[in-house]
Design a protein around this nucleic acid. Structure first.
Length: 618
DNA sequence: AACGGAAGCT
DNA sequence: AGCTTCCGTT
């Protein structure tokens, strides 16, 4: 469990499970799927198809066979494999594409937001680059929960660096077969791998190891290449090479640049003209957690990126929900210091920087160390019947445990710090489950609805419905969306962001590039949640604050109760709470406007946090 | 084909 | 936790 940074590459451990213990965690099915997906050799068996993240199992039996081989389960068949796949539904790692046989889709989106902030692994500035375009796709995406670990205890998790482990390596190696018995198992993969490597040569081979890394640059170029919108003036260059994707996911074909059309089905969908996401975006971003440097610049970048992404891509509306004011966007005035100006790297934030002071060197690339903040974010789905927990990711800090002290988990510790620091009124507590407004709402509703709520379709899972209900009173969404009613085209987020499909598809994203628009938010934003400000009467009846309070109260009660459905709620709650916490934090940061009274200015908050952390360290 | 509960294994 | 195995239902 350590974080490993190999030569700069960091892999999340959730991604990699040591073979050491046979029984323990080996390769996970989704990793395996991704692995197959990225190999051309298996294109006849399984391939990306359709929307972003969507893939079709062309030869179920073969896939099952391969999987069985990998897991040394000769009895594996599609029925079983599909059960495992279904098992991912609850985790939200995957969902079924209805109507299409043997077609499933990775859920990359939610994570997106969340992730990127922290992205940067080595460089200090991670976000920036990534942020821009590739929405979820490449860069930012973080896999869901990934693993158990994330979910697990936070404390432990903390330790464990969420880094990326070298799964890739392992994979690259060859699929190591785990079969103890020596069954032939691995062969398949190995072959595959070998093929890869052989074909290409060392470099490639290497690549294979860390396949995805490229995403950023490559993606950008490839996909985004065009006009980069304002957002990315600086293109590609950056990201460290290493950073990203540990996973093999991406089907990048070649080195870089070219994606085969096939590979990226997603492209077509791409909302924005400029970006397209590769189908396999997923892998790429896991880094988030790892090292997030918490410094002003990063923050800045983060914010910008976040905003942009969200708005532009609609990645996750949720984000906004939490930060109502965020807005970065106001076109005219950026909220924070960071001008919305496009670029991610604008001028640095002055003040903060020193506070952190920790940056060792110049920051160029390497990894600085990052501070140890850990963030976990992943929004959970609603709790419906029994939904499993999702996962979140953890980032970790690195190195020493000692550092941990300094680090915080997003959730608890940080929170506390915050509180201590300033007494914002926000309650951040350990527990609120609210993940996002939606969720909250959902939650609230869900109880009632749950039953009724059937899932009409997968989409539901993610959300839309709840949302509306919640809002119910007012119909406020500017767009007025009734559940059934078609959403207005522009109502971006109105539905749920979560839904991948929506996210990806809908987006009509405004061109980022356009100068003026980098943040069209306002209009967009009308999202139910935040829009409020704008809309006069209707929109949300309940102010967010109130809702939170309400929620809070509820939470408290719940806690008091102590138990409740554990099976369901607990799982969800845990996760959600964490998420919430994080979100709240983010909100705090982002949401300056929201009440000055209650909230400290974001910048101040950051400072406070930093100071505190520093103090504590000392 | 796809879903999902339940039990079992690691 | 993450499947694997079985199986009844839709």
């Amino acid at each position: 469990m350590k974080t490993t940074t190999d030569g700069g590459f960091v892999f999340p451990d959730w991604a990699y499970k040591p073979e050491s213990s046979p029984g323990s965690r080996q390769i996970q099915l989704w990793h395996f799927i991704l692995e197959l997906l990225r190999k051309e050799e298996y294109h006849d068996v399984i391939a990306w198809q359709g929307d972003y993240g969507e893939f079709v199992i062309k030869d179920p039996d073969e896939v099952a066979r391969l999987w069985g081989a990998r897991k040394c389960k000769p009895q594996m068949n599609y029925d079983k494999l599909s059960r495992a796949l279904r098992y991912y539904y609850n985790k939200r790692i995957l969902h079924k594409t209805k109507g299409k046989r043997f077609t499933y889709k990775f859920n990359f989106n939610k994570l997106v937001l969340v992730n990127y902030p922290f992205i940067d692994m080595g460089s200090g500035r991670g976000i920036p680059q990534s942020a821009p375009p590739v929405p979820s796709g490449g860069s930012h995406f973080r896999f869901p929960p990934s693993t158990p670990s994330d979910i697990l205890s936070s404390s432990e998790e903390l330790r464990s660096p969420g880094m990326f482990s070298s799964v890739a390596r392992r994979m690259a190696r060859g699929s190591v077969s785990d079969c103890s018995d020596g069954t032939s198992t691995n062969s398949e993969l190995e072959e595959a791998v070998g093929a890869d490597e052989r074909g290409v040569g060392p470099e490639r081979a290497f690549r294979g190891l860390l396949p995805p890394r490229l995403p950023h640059d490559s993606l950008f170029r490839v996909y985004g290449g065009g006009p980069n919108p304002a957002g990315l003036p600086r293109p590609a260059p950056r990201v460290h090479p290493d950073s990203l994707s540990p996973f093999p996911v991406s089907p990048l074909p070649g080195p870089g640049s070219l994606l085969a059309p096939t590979l990226s089905p997603a492209l077509s969908m791409t909302p924005t003209p400029h970006l397209s996401y590769p189908p396999s975006p997923s892998l790429s971003s896991p880094m988030m957690g790892s090292h997030f440097s918490f410094n002003a610049e990063d923050m800045k970048h983060y914010l910008q990126a976040h905003t942009q992404s969200v708005y532009n891509y609609h990645l996750s509306p949720r984000a906004f929900l939490h930060y109502p004011n965020i807005i970065i966007p106001q076109p005219h005035r950026p909220t924070l210091e960071k001008p919305p100006t496009h670029h991610l790297h604008g001028p640095p934030l002055p003040p903060l920087s020193h506070s952190l002071g920790q940056h060792p060197g110049g920051g160029e690339e390497a990894q600085q160390h990052p501070s140890p903040f850990k963030f976990k974010l992943q929004p959970p789905p609603l709790g419906r019947k029994q939904r499993d927990s999702g996962s979140s990711l953890a980032a970790c800090t690195s190195s020493s445990s000692s550092s941990q002290s300094s680090s915080f988990t997003a959730s608890g510790q940080m929170t506390s710090s915050v509180l201590a620091a300033g007494p914002p009124k926000i309650k951040v507590e350990p527990i609120s489950d609210i993940e996002s407004e939606e969720e909250v709402e959902v939650t609230d509703i869900s109880e009632e609805d749950e039953m009724n709520h059937d899932d009409h379709d997968e989409g539901d899972i993610f959300t839309p419905t709840a949302h509306h209900q919640l809002n119910s009173h007012p119909q406020a969404n500017g767009s007025g969306s009734s559940p059934s009613a078609p959403l207005p085209p522009h109502s971006f987020h109105d539905d749920d962001p979560d839904d991948d499909e929506e996210v990806f598809k809908t987006p009509a994203t405004p061109p980022i590039g356009s100068a003026a628009l980098p943040f069209p938010l306002i209009s967009l934003k009308s999202e139910p949640g935040q829009a409020a400000p704008i809309s006069p009467g209707g929109t949300r009846c309940i102010p967010i604050k109130l809702r939170f309070k309400r929620r809070w109260s509820e939470d408290q009660k719940m806690e008091a109760d102590g138990e409740r459905d554990e099976a369901e709620d607990k799982k969800l709650e845990k996760h959600e709470r964490r998420t919430l916490e994080v979100l709240k934090q983010q909100q705090a940061l982002f949401d300056p406007a929201d009440s000055a009274e209650e909230r400290t200015h974001p910048v101040l908050l950051l400072l406070l946090l930093l100071n505190q952390s520093s103090e504590s360290l000392e």
